[in-house]
Design a protein around this nucleic acid. Structure first.
Lengths: 339, 339
DNA sequence: CTCCAGCACTCTCGCCATCCGAGTGCCAAT
DNA sequence: ATTGGCACTCGGATGGCGAGAGTGCTGGAG
């Protein structure tokens, strides 16, 4: 009973099941893959694989399907990387480079992933924490309200309302804006706390309270992980016939709507080195127990990860294809992203 | 055969069908609603209603269900307004007023609608065209790329990348920014074209090309209806058992993903006077032929409509409740919105 | 020791026939 | 105009049956 052939059998089962979406039996297996052995032998291997918890049968007298553990082994050891075709790569590149602004870049990346993988794409906006500050803008709106706008060097814009004492005059505001900008220009967002402190100290007494409030709002806003935005694309793919979930779409859609939790999940599973895969029950979110998540960080050309993008589909997914797509888009995205 | 009772019957059918999601027959009808007549009489009325195309039977020997036309009549003439309870209103108000920025306001409005109606909420960001310009910002990013940021007085921010000749020096950029801002300050976005023209003319020759490019990008960006963003909330509601669509979720999800087309539909159906309803096949989008859309404009306190929000659900929906919810949220939203 | 052919056994799924009940339409009576 | 009665229709549920797919096991061959 060769160990190697047993893994061949597992690979064959995964590939066939992914393709046909039907439990695969020993006969079909020997017919479609040249394993060089008879169905009976395959059955023995299957028994061993089932014993090891890598495959299971939905009911007696049905073929086998891979378990989460089986998929895990497949992804880690058995899957062969299948790089995209050259036309595909070129399509990605041009499609991304046609974007007119950051929103558009993110939207296009999502559409690419959704289309290439036929699944749901999740794209996180470039994270504030890791970007630099480009400009700070203070805009009075209604009486007693101030709009604080932060522009980062990845082109992202963040806004906050702030209640201020009535009677603010435009001159003070202009001065405040000028000083803050001078202090913060070019610094990482995480470092501007000190710079701002110096500014507030230098302000005349009557305006110091306001200055402090602004500084606080800015740093607080930037510290708030929860404000990091994500975009979902291709949810319609969930309704395709190829995606029948045992429990129905409900839990999946609900999980996708909990954007904060979802983002947490993605952040946790992403390591800096390339693409990460989380399979079925490995996902903390109960609603995603029938799905697998493939994520990758992306960032500026220097390799820093500033955000995450991922593809979510049924555990029975085309792992090599999905991984290739996610990696490719992440790579080109990093290249296109402003500095 | 009194005309009035016939409408009572229609109303009863709609209400019962909405509640039970099952075709309703003559017997049940007389039991649950005190119509004061016998099932046989009701049957006669039903025959007439069916003749008029207001109700239909899925198959012989089943009860009747309203047609799109039947719902239309119900909405236009039969539905009684059912205002929200005071606690509900208060909840809306406080929940909206807790928002920290424009993104948050829009997100919260969506969540409110989704929760109150149990359906999908669509909220459009305040439209650029109808707002005023607050600030224009020019930010150099990568070599040869310029980020143009527009801030409106509704707190919305729009961004565009622009390719510029290399070798732009910061001084020129600063001057350009200052002049444009001076020219545009306080104007409606639709009027800044002229103001910008004067600025470009006044620029020294060597920078005029750049100035023109910027002006063009800004006006072009603002003219682009397609860039108007919408936010979807509560898609998980689509998977609830109460939402069985004949054709499945697929077409609905697909329609919701065509955000540009969807927004066009919403814009067309919204008139300035309050809540509008579009039922089933009345929707231009084929994917929404099994759904009804309830929309309302919202805007600043002075009554101008600057954007749209709506709720989308099955044609068999609780029209009075949905209408009340949409109207209430639109109203409070207008009140909370900056200036 | 590995592999394999054969065989008995077990389930699921699809099919068909049947039955039941809800609901209708029509008619004659009030 | 309304109503009670009645024959009729049809969809959906139920249950039995057979076919097919797949398994596990056993005993024999290389």
């Amino acid at each position: 009973m060769s160990e190697e052939r047993r893994l061949d059998v597992l690979r064959a089962i995964v590939e066939d099941y992914v393709r046909t979406r039907e439990p695969v039996g020993s006969r079909i297996l020997t017919e479609r893959h040249k394993l060089g052995v008879s169905p009976a032998t395959v059955r023995n291997d299957m028994a061993a694989l089932e014993e090891a918890g890598l495959i299971a049968q939905p009911h007696t007298s049905a073929g086998r399907i891979p378990t989460d553990k089986g998929y895990r082994l497949f992804v880690d050891q058995l899957a062969e990387v299948r790089p995209l075709t050259v036309p595909q790569k070129r399509a990605i590149e041009t499609f991304l480079s046609e974007a007119v602004d950051l929103d558009d870049v993110v939207a296009r990346a999502g559409r690419l992933i959704a289309q290439l993988t036929g699944q749901v794409a999740v794209v996180q906006y470039p994270s504030l924490r890791r970007s630099g500050l480009r400009h700070l803008e203070l805009v009075p709106t209604a009486e007693g309200r101030l709009l604080v706008v932060v522009i980062t060097d990845t082109g992202r814009v963040e806004q906050r309302f702030l209640d201020v004492p009535v009677g603010m005059d435009d001159g003070t505001l202009g001065e405040l804006r000028a000083r803050f900008n001078a202090a913060a220009a070019g610094h990482r967002l995480t470092e501007i706390g000190n710079a701002f402190a110096r500014v507030t100290e230098a302000m005349p007494d009557e305006h110091r309270a306001l200055a402090t409030a602004v500084a606080e709002v800015v740093t607080a806003a930037l510290a708030e992980e929860s404000e990091e935005r994500i975009v979902l694309t291709g949810q319609a793919n969930l309704a395709r016939s190829s995606m029948r979930f045992e429990q129905g779409l409900r839990p999946v859609l609900e999980a996708l709507e909990e954007q904060v939790v979802l983002l947490g999940l993605l952040t946790d599973m992403t390591d800096d080195a390339g693409v990460a895969v989380s399979i079925g029950h490995e996902n903390r979110l109960a609603g995603l127990s029938e799905t697998s998540v493939v994520t990758s960080g992306y960032g500026s050309s220097d390799g820093d990860t500033v955000a995450i993008l991922s593809s979510i589909g049924p555990t029975r997914m085309d792992y090599p294809g999905t991984i290739a797509a996610v990696r490719a888009v992440a790579r080109y995205l990093s290249r296109v992203l402003p500095s």
